[in-house]
């Protein structure tokens, strides 16, 4: 049978994949995609807990409201982040994270 643990493990693996991508990849756009993956993994854990913690015989809708807010914030974050990437590309002609070293000592 599928337990809450199964969902939590899938969520953890998706988060780890995103984390590995953020650390290992050098293309800023792909780093951004991996960030989105990590946010979605957190959403999966939240919805899992919501389903398996019943309030009056219904899923816990507080958690699902939090997921709603997370998705909204993620959408806003992507819009602003991609605008920053476009501005960065205009000044550096590259989307490589290693092309941005101005703050390096």
């Amino acid at each position: 049978m599928i337990t809450l643990g199964h969902y939590l493990v899938v969520s953890g693996m998706l988060f780890s994949l995103g984390l590995a991508g953020v650390i290992a990849r050098r293309n800023i756009i792909i780093v951004y995609m991996c960030l989105e993956m990590m946010l979605s993994a957190a959403n999966l854990a939240l919805v899992g807990f919501s389903r398996f913690h019943l309030v009056n015989g219904l899923p816990d809708y507080t958690a699902q409201s939090l997921v709603f807010f997370t998705i909204t914030v993620a959408a806003a974050e992507v819009a602003v982040g991609l605008a920053i990437i476009v501005a960065l590309f205009r000044s550096k002609q590259s989307v490589d994270v290693e092309s941005v070293t101005k703050l390096q000592g």
Partner: peptide, 18 residues
């Protein structure tokens, strides 16, 4: 996976938004 957890609304906005 969201749909399998009875979270139909979240599943639908996951597809629409993401």
């Amino acid at each position: 996976l969201f749909l399998s957890l009875d979270a139909y609304f979240i599943g639908v906005i996951q597809i629409l938004v993401y």
